[in-house]
Design a protein around this nucleic acid. Structure first.
Length: 825
RNA sequence: GCCGGAGUGGCGGAAUGGGCAGACGCACGGGACUUAAAAUCCCGAGGGCCGAGAGGCCCGUGCCGGUUCGAGUCCGGCCUCCGGCACCA
């Protein structure tokens, strides 16, 4: 009897050997045999891996091992997004410096990845909090500034007066700070932005060139960019020199515009208020709307509120004056922050008009219908033909009417065709300490001045006071803030905003190729060779922001000539979350620390070994879908590995010499069929079905051993294949047995087994016989049997015959090697 | 509201260029081994009905309808759940 599989011992032995061997990518690989894969970088500011979080690292490692066995030189690096809010909050609470806290977490996560047997290329490791990395964030920022892609503008933020800090939307609960409970104010701050909207069209059209991305993610990105074609129309305001510009997707309904509505934040509001008779009321309304939480204001059922300014403007279509309103449902960020209200054909405008008694003026009608605006209970569709629209009358609804409208507007100088996007520029300013300092200096005489390249990196100061920290600790570091203007040399102040951590992750996939390079941000030659990333693995939560910003920065670098590609990630795989029963709520929820339903890998590795954990994590379900964790399932995975161990031990005891058996035994057929199944499943990342095939294979081997029906050669061939196929999933046990069988090279360095197609295909098939579409019997036939053979066999079969005896066979449907359907009357 | 995804045994799931529904595993039941238990191994099992039994028949992939010799798979309409986005002009 062989000794039991002792996971801890085996894990330890192989982790040590792999570490010593430094399995890593070879620089001299032939282009085309190279495979660059990337797991979504971890945030080390959290604490440790849990099973849900570890799923993609296990999947990534299995894919890496599979690629290596396919003969590809694979680059599989790991980086850390080491800047992040939790570290700063932890520092405030515990007094531990964010750097110390973060580095400790990186160390712990590395250990955990190591104990899972994950072979990351640590020679390419990087961390975003390292000046060797973030100096290039700053360098990139300066280049963006030069190109007009980085700029400052005011933006409203949630300000907590108690914490003296800016809050994220999710930190605001019922208008109050979730931590201190203070009422949150809306403040205008001047902040830095990246002009991602300049790239909206390219980011949108690039999606068409990504066939290996899921439609799901591409659709989400398309919707986020939100391209819409329409027109900008100028409305001349009574008594004012500057017209108000409106963006609309339906310029054809201009003659139906019976009011104009501005966002309360619209820049013209101040001047309107000066001239309005109800100035005080207007300003009070503006103040009130600005206090409304953004969520509430944007929600479906939100109350539409407005106030009349008493100012009139001219509808350029009709030439008639219509009133200007301020309305809470008009958003300053979208379009021009001003709309023309067409109540007859827009439901939202209709509700607003009914509430405030504004006229409703239809401009579309079908041939028959006579429309009574007073009887309408909701907005009309744009059905039929334009009428009451001057020279546009008779134009049918659709692109034609819009074209007519736009050319008229352009001819008269009242407006022009315009493509609008929902996408907004990327706000990168953070009023935080733990991040990349923005390399700008505020000089009283020269204004905002860029830090010269020669002064990079602008180092994040270490001696920052976190005790009783309020606001941005950077502001209190005199050594950091006080500087000289690089232009005039006079005393000046450093910018204290730091960058959004999405800046870090928007180009790290390039930096893995030269993480220690002090001369340049990216190594163009290596990028040409390795990029795009062949396989990117990450959670669906990054489907929009992170991936959009990474695609944006890649394009900017292309325009700068530093890289020659637009799309950084050729294949994208979004793995589903692991869920588990939450004892607190009694519901099955995604596994996460904040919900308190996590399972630590450390504990499971100690009990069952890394292979069991890996096997079960991959077996639990299709990786792109959510899967529910179950403790009992882990034991089942462990049992399987013990059976593999048992089979290996018994085959090892077989005599080496002996008669070679026949070349096509049942076992050999099973071996080759299994190689085929696992190869195909692994290509789809469907390790759960590959494992099912391996379980059947193990049973086949055990049965053959029991029956003594197979030659030692066939059994050895089977066990070799089993170990190789199982290796990406359970590397420790398989490597152990590979070497016990006398092999000298690492399993990962062996070639993936190749199946013999003739052996993988069975000679006999089961043909299903149906009568009128219902299964009535099965025939065992030689592969490739003809229809007439099948029919005569079916006629000869007692059982099947009872179903059509005495009736006429009207038709037969024959699918070779699968099915025969007899249609009888 | 819009967009996307999903719905299959007690449970996780398998099977879609239409062709044996429920692979594999968990839990469960029975058996072997054992003084006993654990561990391990073997067997069983979608539901209903008929039969002493071997076995047989009917129903069954969220619901209703359609196409087809044949539908978990395709089409139309609905329901539920999950994710994303949302007064988007």
């Amino acid at each position: 009897m062989a000794e039991k599989y002792s996971p801890a011992e085996i894990d330890a032995r192989w982790q040590r050997r792999w570490a010593e061997a430094r399995v890593s990518f070879v620089d001299t690989a032939v282009p085309g045999d190279e495979y660059y894969m990337l797991n979504m970088y971890p945030y080390p500011s959290g604490s440790r891996l849990h099973v849900g979080h570890g799923r993609n690292y296990i999947l990534g490692d299995a894919l890496y091992r599979r690629q290596r066995m396919a003969g590809r030189k694979a680059l599989n690096p790991m980086g850390w997004d080491a800047f992040g809010l939790p570290a700063e909050n932890a520092a405030i609470q515990s007094g531990i410096h964010p750097r110390e806290y973060t580095l400790a977490n990186i160390g712990r996560m590395k250990e955990q990845l190591h104990s899972l047997g994950c072979l990351y290329d640590w020679s390419k490791e990087l961390a975003s909090c390292d000046p060797a990395y973030y100096r290039w964030n700053q360098w990139l920022f300066l280049r963006m500034w030069e190109r007009g892609l980085a700029y400052r503008k005011t933006a409203p933020v949630n300000w907590c007066p108690g914490c003296r800090t800016v809050l994220a939307n999710e930190q605001v609960v019922d208008g109050r700070c979730e931590r201190s409970g203070d009422a949150v104010e809306i403040r205008d701050l001047t902040q830095w932005f990246f002009r991602v909207t300049d790239y909206a069209e390219r980011l949108l059209s690039g999606l068409d060139g990504l066939p290996h991305w899921s439609d799901r993610v591409k659709t989400m990105q398309r919707n986020w960019i939100g391209r819409s074609e329409g027109a900008e129309i100028l409305f001349r305001v009574d008594g004012m020199t500057d017209p108000v510009t409106v963006f609309t997707t339906r310029p054809d309904t201009l003659f139906g515009a019976t009011f104009l509505a501005l966002a309360p934040e619209h820049p013209a509001v101040a001047r309107l208020a000066e001239r309005s008779a109800s100035s005080a009321e207007l300003l009070a309304f503006v103040e009130r709307v600005r206090r409304e939480s953004r969520l509430e204001r944007e929600s479906e059922g939100g109350e539409k509120e407005g106030i009349e300014t008493g100012i009139l403007e001219i509808n350029p279509g009709t030439g008639e004056p219509i009133p200007v309103w301020l309305a809470n449902f008009v958003l300053p960020e979208y379009g021009t922050g001003a709309i023309m209200g067409v109540p007859a054909h827009d439901q939202r405008d209709f509700e607003f008009a009914r509430k405030y008694g504004l006229p409703v003026r239809p401009v579309y009608r079908t041939a028959s219908a006579e429309i009574d605006p007073d009887a309408m209970t909701q907005a009309l569709s744009h059905e039929g033909f334009l009428y009451r629209s001057g020279t546009w009358d008779g134009a049918p609804n659709g692109p034609e009417a819009i074209r007519v409208a736009i050319s008229w507007l352009e001819e008269k100088g009242f407006g022009k065709g315009k493509v609008g996007y929902r996408l907004r520029d990327w706000l990168i300013s953070r009023q935080r300490y733990w991040g990349t300092p923005i390399p700008a200096i505020h000089c009283p005489t020269c204004g905002v001045v860029p830090v010269p390249d020669s002064d990079l990196p602008v180092l994040l100061p270490e001696d920052v006071d976190f005790q009783g920290a309020e606001g941005n600790p950077l502001e209190k570091s005199a050594a950091f803030v006080e500087t000289r203007c690089p232009r005039c040399g006079e005393a000046a102040r450093r910018e204290t905003d730091t960058m959004d951590t999405f800046v870090d992750s928007s180009w790290y996939y390039l930096r893995f190729l030269n993480p220690q390079d002090t001369e340049r941000m990216v190594d163009t030659e290596r990028v040409d060779r390795w990029l795009p990333v062949d396989q990117y693995i990450g959670g669906i939560e990054h489907a929009i922001l992170h991936l959009l910003y990474a695609r944006f920065v890649c394009r900017v670098l292309k325009d700068m000539g530093l890289v020659h590609l637009e799309e950084p990630f050729e294949r994208l795989f979004n793995q589903g979350m692991i869920t588990r029963l939450n004892p607190a709520t009694g519901k099955v929820e995604k596994m996460s620390k904040s919900r308190g339903n996590t399972v630590s890998p450390d504990e499971l590795i100690e009990r069952f070994g890394a292979d069991t954990l890996r096997l079960y994590t991959l077996f639990i379900g299709p990786p792109e879908k959510e899967s529910e964790w179950s403790e009992e399932g882990v034991a089942g995975a462990h049992r399987f590995l013990n059976r593999v161990h048992e089979v290996c031990a018994r085959v090892q005891e077989l005599p080496d010499a002996g008669e070679a058996g026949p070349p096509d035994t049942d076992l050999r057929r099973l071996t080759h069929r299994t190689i085929q199944r696992v190869t195909e499943d692994a290509a789809k990342f469907h390790f759960h079905t590959a494992i099912a095939a391996l379980m059947e294979f193990q049973r086949g081997l055990a049965e053959a051993l029991e029956a003594g029906s197979e030659s030692p050669q066939a059994l050895r061939e089977g066990v070799r294949a089993l170990l190789q196929l199982l290796h990406p999933i359970a590397p420790h046990l398989t490597e152990e047995w590979w070497h016990r069988f006398g092999e000298r090279v690492f399993l990962i360095e062996t070639a993936w087994p190749v199946f013999d197609a003739a052996l993988a295909t069975s000679t006999d098939v089961t043909l299903v016989v149906q009568v009128n579409g219902k299964v009535r019997g099965r025939l065992s036939l030689a592969r490739g049997a003809t229809e007439s053979e099948a029919v005569s066999r079916a006629r000869a079969d007692e059982r099947i015959r009872t179903w059509f005896e005495g009736r006429e066979i009207a038709r037969t449907v024959f699918v070779p090697d699968r099915l025969l359907n007899l249609v009888v009357r």
